[in-house]
Simulated assay, not measured.
Amino acid sequence: MGYFYILGTILFTVYGQLMLKWRIDKFGSLPKETFDKVLFLLRLLLDPLILSGFLSAFVASLFWMAAMTKFNISFAYPFMSLSFVLVFLFSVFMFGEPMTSQKVIGLLLIVFGIIVTSQSL
């Protein structure tokens, strides 16, 4: 059951990040003027899908608390790096962000690091 909690943490974290990026892109760039910035940010905060991203972060935190009851943090935390991998992969397909060889090598290093740190000695 502990791995389910880690998976929930990762999935809700990834959803939240992707939702925020998707919706913020729909609103455009942050204005230059301070008052306009405040209005822009308030409009973002009132967007239901952005609010779902914040709610997702909260739910991810609940899953993380549950995971902490099952694992040492030194074991569980490296799995959180999978969120980097998933956000990257989804960003390529959803937002057309570039996939470079450096990014792929970096992600492979992350996955290798997760494998190494999750091994019992």
Rank of each mutant, 00 (worst) to 15 (best):
F40G: 06
I24M: 14
I114T: 05
Y15K: 14
K26P: 06
F93V: 12
S118K: 00
F88W: 03
M65D: 05
I110N: 01
E33V: 12
V87K: 00
I115L: 08
M94A: 06
K70D: 12
L41I: 14
I105G: 10
L109K: 11
S118F: 12
M65E: 13
S91D: 01
P98N: 07
G2K: 00
A60T: 05
L121H: 12
S56C: 00
G8R: 04
F112S: 13
I114G: 06
I10Y: 05
K32L: 14
F4P: 12
S61H: 06
L55G: 08
D36T: 11
F54L: 06
L62E: 05
V111T: 08
D25F: 08
F54K: 11
M1S: 07
S83C: 11
L7I: 10
M1Y: 13
S61A: 08
L82N: 03
V38S: 08
A76K: 07
L82D: 03
L107F: 04
S52C: 09
L30M: 13
I105T: 15
T117R: 13
T9W: 11
L121D: 04
N72M: 14
F4D: 01
V116H: 09
S118M: 02
Q119C: 15
L82I: 03
T9A: 09
S101G: 14
Y5L: 06
S56N: 10
I105F: 07
F71H: 00
S56A: 05
L39S: 04
L46E: 06
S91G: 06
V14D: 02
F54T: 07
A60D: 07
F93R: 04
D47P: 01
M1D: 12
G113T: 05
P78I: 01
W22V: 01
K70I: 11
D36E: 14
M68Y: 10
L55A: 08
T9S: 10
V38K: 09
A66L: 13
A60F: 04
V87H: 07
L121T: 11
M19E: 15
M68C: 02
G2S: 03
R43P: 07
L49H: 07
S52A: 05
L39M: 14
S29E: 13
T34H: 13
L62N: 11
I50F: 15
P31T: 05
F112L: 15
I115K: 00
L18C: 00
L39G: 07
M99W: 14
I115E: 06
K70G: 07
G2H: 02
S118A: 00
S61F: 11
K37Q: 11
A66M: 12
L20K: 08
L82S: 06
P31W: 04
F4V: 10
M1E: 02
L7D: 04
G16V: 00
K32A: 10
Y15H: 08
P78F: 09
M1L: 15
I73W: 08
F79Y: 01
F4Y: 06
V92K: 06
I114F: 03
G106E: 03
R23F: 15
S120H: 13
F90D: 07
F112E: 01
F90V: 07
L30V: 13
